[in-house]
C-alpha cells in the first residue's frame, strides 16, 4: 500500500475526467435540466450556509433585536461594537484570550504530533533495533482509542502532573495517537531504497539523510497533515472542557458554551454569535485556502 494511491477511495485519484472531455454528448445536461441542477445545488449551498449566515447576522445586531423574535435576516450596524466587545471583554474572559489559547493548542498539537511521528516513523522504517516490533505494535494500539473513551483516568494523570489549566495539559494527551506515525511510515516505505543507498554512498549519516532527503521529500505530507491536525486541535471540546477550570485558559470552542448564563437569564446572543463566528474563522480560512492540501490530508489520515 502506498501513501497516496491506495489509501482513500476517492480524492486521491485524479479528477481530470472533466478536463479531457469530448464536446457535450448524450449524457450531458443542457437547457432546463442544467438550470435545475444549478438551482438544486444553489439551494443546497443556501441550506448548508443558513446557520452560518444567521450567526453572522446575529453578531451584527443588538440584543433587543434578537430578544424580540423574529430576529432580522439581514445584518445590522453593530458589527464593530459586538466584535470589539467580544474580543476585548467577552463574557467571562476576553475572546482574544481564548483565541490565543486555541491557537497555541491547535499549533501545539499539530507540530507536536508531526515532530514525534516523523522521528518514530523514521526509526521504525530505517532501523532494525531491539524492541522494534514491540514499539511498532505499541504505537499501533494507540490508533484505536479516542480520548473520549479514557477521559477519567487521563484526567487523573494530567491532574497528578499538575498540568490542569496549562498548555501542556491541553496538548500532550492529544498527541499520544499514532495516526500521523502510520501516515509517515506508509510514506517512508514508498521512498525508493536506492535513495537511502545513494545517500549512504554519498556519505550521509542517518540523521543527515533524515534532514536532507526524507524531510524535504515529506513536505507535502507534512503540510497536508498540519492542516488536518490544526483543525482537529482547534475543534477539541471535551478535553479543554475538563481540564481548563480557569476561564483564562479556556479555548474558544469550549468557551462559547461557558458564555451561556445558568438559570433563566437571557444569553448575550450578539456577543456569543460573534464569538462563534470568530471560532470558525481560523479553521475555515485554513480549509478554504489550502483546499488541495486539506483534501489530501483528509484522504491520507483516513488510512
Amino acid at each position: 500500500m502506498t501513501a497516496t494511491h491506495d489509501i482513500g477511495p476517492g480524492p486521491a485519484q485524479p479528477s481530470g475526467r472533466r478536463a479531457a472531455e469530448p464536446p457535450p454528448g448524450m449524457v450531458e445536461r443542457r437547457g432546463a435540466s442544467l438550470w435545475l441542477t444549478h438551482a438544486l445545488l444553489i439551494l443546497g449551498v443556501l441550506v448548508v450556509f443558513f446557520p452560518i449566515w444567521l450567526a453572522f447576522v446575529a453578531s451584527t445586531v443588538t440584543q433587543p433585536e434578537i430578544a424580540r423574535p423574529p430576529m432580522p435576516l439581514w445584518p445590522g450596524d453593530r458589527f464593530f461594537e459586538n466584535y470589539r466587545e467580544a474580543l476585548l471583554s467577552g463574557v467571562n474572559v476576553p475572546v482574544a484570550t481564548m483565541l490565543l489559547n486555541s491557537l497555541v493548542m491547535a499549533i501545539g498539537i499539530a507540530v507536536g504530533k508531526i515532530v514525534i511521528s516523523l522521528l518514530s516513523a523514521f526509526a521504525i522504517v530505517y532501523f532494525r533495533f531491539p524492541g522494534r516490533t514491540f514499539f511498532f505494535w505499541t504505537i499501533f494500539l494507540t490508533l484505536m482509542l479516542p480520548v473520549e473513551v479514557r477521559i477519567v483516568p487521563t484526567y487523573e494523570v494530567v491532574a497528578g502532573f499538575g498540568m490542569l489549566n496549562s498548555y501542556s495539559g491541553l496538548i500532550f494527551p492529544l498527541i499520544a495517537s499514532a495516526t500521523a506515525t502510520f501516515l509517515f511510515r506508509q510514506f517512508f516505505l514508498t521512498i525508493p531504497d536506492e535513495l537511502a543507498e545513494a545517500a549512504r554512498v554519498d556519505g550521509a549519516k542517518p540523521m543527515r539523510f533524515f534532514w536532507d532527503i526524507v524531510l524535504p521529500m515529506s513536505r507535502t505530507n507534512i503540510a497536508a497533515l498540519f492542516v488536518i491536525l490544526f483543525i482537529y486541535g482547534w475543534n477539541q471540546y471535551l478535553w479543554p472542557l475538563l481540564i481548563t477550570t480557569d476561564p483564562s485558559m479556556n479555548t474558544i470552542v469550549m468557551g462559547i458554551k461557558q458564555m451561556f448564563p445558568s438559570g433563566d437569564d437571557i444569553a448575550e446572543w450578539p456577543v456569543i454569535m460573534a464569538t462563534s463566528i470568530l471560532a470558525m474563522i481560523p479553521p475555515v480560512i485554513v480549509v478554504v485556502s489550502m483546499q488541495k492540501l486539506f483534501i489530501r490530508g483528509l484522504v491520507d489520515s483516513e488510512k
Binding site: L119, F129, P173, A176
Partner: peptide
Amino acid sequence: VTFKGWMLPLLLVAPQVVISAVFFF
C-alpha cells in the same frame, strides 16, 4: 536498506513511546 546502531532509533521513538505510555497506556 537500514542504518546500523540501536541507540539512535531508541532515542527517536522515545518521545512517542513516553507520551503514549503516560497519557495513553
